[in-house]
Every structure is written in structure tokens, then in C-alpha cells.
Amino acid sequence: MSSAYLWGLLFFSLHAMVPITLAAVGEVIGETAGLFNIGLEGIMLTAALTGALGATQGGWPLGLLVGLATGLLIGLIFGLISTYAKGDQLIVGIGVNLFALGFVAFGLTLLGSPGFYIVPAASRLPKIHTAVGNLSPLVLVAVILPFLVYWLLNYTQLGLKLKAVGEQPAAADVAGLRVNALRLGATACGAALAGLAGAYLSIDWLGSVTKEISAGRGFIALATVVFAGLNPLLTLLGGIIFGFFDSLATWVANIPGVKEAVPWQMISMLPYVVTLLVVAVIGRVHFPSALGKPYSRE
């Protein structure tokens, strides 16, 4: 086991962490304010496509921007239905997932290359070169962002307001907070981060879009939010744990002799079994009492 192998594993884990942590930390913002968006998978998938096309057109800055904007837009639709229209958040989220599955495959078909789209090398996000491997700048973003959000939620007026509308919307309303506006803003910004995660997949990490490019990472992000109990810092930890064991499973499976001792299917279960064990040890976490319920003045 060379040190290059271990560095490689570490770096790959960090890259695998990024989409999960970005989407999860965004969802933390929304859930803190009381909105539960199960549509992360769909947002990531859609933004992977639109972000890739944006990058092809105007380079990676536009790609990231389009990814963010796609997430923001879907988040706004989700948020408007879930707040002012008092709709069922669950249904919208599931609808977003279904829509995205069809929309991305449909869009790829009409682009002329059904099933996949490769982002030109010139439109990719530049990498940070280090002695032991290349690093995506978004790794740094994904590491720093949870701290920023932690600060925002716990040490700013805005954060306190978001918590208030998530925990006690009626009291917040009486206190003069605009419950629906705050919720809408929070979930839209959160969804924008899921969009960024999608753009990361296509214009950075994997350099391509396929009809299943998100491969369940949106749901893993959702699980990470639950694991974190809405603590942004723990989404980073959760993303790293999952990213590490997910990568470890693949890396270990390639070492000669391992598959003979343990079937590869069992090795592939590793990240999921570990996550389950970790959450079983942690036990119960707290959620905002008004999570998932639309607020209406009685």
C-alpha cells in the first residue's frame, strides 16, 4: 500500500463528499425554516444538465451560475407551493424527482446524443494542483460552507428568525416575522446549493451528464441531513463518512486477493452498513417541530 494509494483514496473521498455535503447543508437551511424538500435528487440531476450546457456555452463560471440558478428556480417553485399556496411539500418534492428523471433523459435525447453529454475539457472547472493529486476548488467550498451556515444559523439575527419560523411559526408571526417569506428564501437558497452540487458533478467531478448522473446522491444527502440533526457542521462529517466508505469500498475491492476473501457485493454494502451503524449509535436527533407543515394563520 503506497502513500500514493492512500492519498488517492483520501482525495477521492473528499471529492465524493462534495455533492452530498453541498446538497445536505442547503437542505439544513430549508429544514431549519420548516420546509422538507425531498426533491434534492431531482434538483441535482436537472442542474447537472443545465450547468453542463451553461459551461459549454460560457465556461465554468457560467456553468456554476446556471447550476445555482436552476436549483434556485426549482427551490422557488417548491417554496411558493409549500408556503403561500400551503401545498404538500412531500408531493412537490416527489414530483420534482419524477420530473427531473424524465426531463434530463428527454433533454439529452433532443441534444443529439441520447443518454450522455460530455463537457468539453476547456469548459471544466480548473483544478488546484498539489504534490499528491488534483483537488477541486469546490472541495474547499464544501468544507468552508458548513461553518458559514453554522455561523449564520446560530449567531445572526437571520438565523434566529429562520429557527423561529421553523420551530414556532405562530409565535414568529405574532412577533412580526414574515413566516412564508423567510421560509421561501431559506428553501430557495438551500435548493440553489443542491443545484451547485449537480453542476459540480457534470462540469467538475465526472465531466459528463448521463440520465442517472446523480445516482441516488440526493437521497444520501437527505439521509445526511437527518444524520446531522440539522447541524451544518455534522453534514460535513456525514458527507466525509459516506464519501470515505463509498470510496473505500471501491478501492479495497481492487486490491488483489480481497474479492476472493469477501464477495464484492458485500464490500459494496460497506458505506450503507457503516452509516446505519453510526446513526444507530448516535440515536435520536431533534427536528423543528413545524417541519413539513405549511403555516397558516388560524
Binding site: 400551503k86 401545498g87 414530483g95 420534482v96 435525447t109
Partner: peptide
Amino acid sequence: VPLEMVRVVEGLILIALAVPE
């Protein structure tokens, strides 16, 4: 029409369904 259109419609129906209005 590509088969995927069905999923698009299904998703749109669900989103519409969520609106209690």
C-alpha cells in the same frame, strides 16, 4: 415522442396536485 416524456408528465401532475388551491 421519447418514452421519458411520461415521467415528465407524471412529475408535473404531482406538482400540480400539491397545490391545494
